[in-house]
């Protein structure tokens, strides 16, 4: 396992940060961490990267306990509050981080060129960070995190300051890293982003993990079926309510949740048998947003 935590817990005095968090992330995966504000995601990430000390529990990165200095040579981290020394130029900043990673001069020079190209900042490195836009600062931060060709990369809201093109570029970088067997932990509020790139997901709420697994597993079993029907009558509605008592009817469109794709054929037959004229039947996976909202709101009600 590249990331493994066992009952890792953090209390700030009496206030809970996160509790008994257990996750395992395989090599070559993009792992998404989701949760509402204040759920404990950042606390968890900060414990993994060594900014915060856990109150109890254990964590291992690349097989070594959290905080192992040598392991950090292979770990990149882009903080949520990306802020860098404004008096430095982009090149100064990258050289500084290359020296922190203890890269030798030749390698450092090569890597700086590479990462500048990767984050599309080539030519801007001679300017001071204070003149960079927020998006550029986030890009240079990502470049710093990518300097050591990390085996494990922590990205805490990596696209918060980027425009849609920048977001896509960061997604492409993540996918590229994965294709080279690198592991990425992505902490993001952008559910569509997580849904698009992540192999597995953990949803954290009130400091505890409420759901985790492969992205497909989490979304599986939550199918939404849209049927376009003319001649909707009470027989059709009553028979469909067996599948979803809270189905929605909008003009000639019926939307309902179903357990599996196997239900689709039965529903088609049922509509036709009850006198409806079926013009369209589209099963689609429930969005991560819905799953997320249901889990978080469900947790809140409890």
């Amino acid at each position: 396992m590249v990331i493994e935590t066992v009952d890792i817990t953090k209390y700030y005095g009496k206030k809970l940060g996160c509790r008994n968090v257990c996750i395992s992330v395989d090599k070559g995966q993009i792992f998404g961490l989701l949760g509402p504000n204040g759920a404990g995601k950042s606390t968890f990430v900060k414990m993994l990267v060594g900014l915060i000390h856990p109150t109890s529990g254990k964590g291992f990165l690349l097989g070594k306990p959290i905080g192992d200095i040598n392991t950090r040579k292979k770990i990149g981290y882009l903080p949520e509050n990306f802020k860098y020394q404004e008096w430095m130029t982009g090149a100064d900043l990258l050289s500084f981080h290359a020296s922190l990673y203890k890269l030798d001069k030749r390698l450092s020079h090569e890597r700086i060129e590479d990462v500048l190209h990767l984050v599309k900042l080539s030519g801007n490195e001679r300017y001071k960070i204070s003149t960079y836009s927020k998006g550029m600062q986030q890009r240079i931060g990502l470049a710093c995190a990518l300097l050591p060709e990390p085996d494990l990369l922590f990205l805490d809201e990596p696209t918060s300051a980027l425009d849609p093109i920048g977001r896509k570029e960061v997604r492409d970088i993540m996918l590229e890293l994965r294709s080279h067997g690198k592991t990425v932990l992505l902490n993001s509020h952008l559910l569509s982003e997580v849904e698009t790139v992540c192999d597995s997901i953990a949803i954290i709420n009130k400091g505890e993990i409420v759901k985790q697994g492969n992205t497909d597993e989490i979304l599986e079993g939550k199918l939404v079926l849209e049927a376009v029907v003319e001649g909707i009558n009470s027989s059709i509605i009553n028979s469909l309510k067996k599948y979803d008592s809270e189905l929605i009817i909008n003009n000639n469109k019926i939307t309902l949740s179903i357990e599996s794709k196997d239900n689709v054929h039965e529903i088609a037959c049922m509509i036709v048998e009850n006198g409806g004229r079926l013009y369209g039947l589209t099963p689609r996976r429930e969005s991560l947003e819905n799953v997320f909202i249901n889990l978080v709101e469900g947790g809140d009600q409890v």
């Binding site: 040598n70 950090r72 981290y77 903080p79 802020k83």
Partner: peptide, 12 residues
Amino acid sequence: SGILHSIITRPI
């Protein structure tokens, strides 16, 4: 400012 976050998470 948060500058420290990206420094002390490096191998030092």
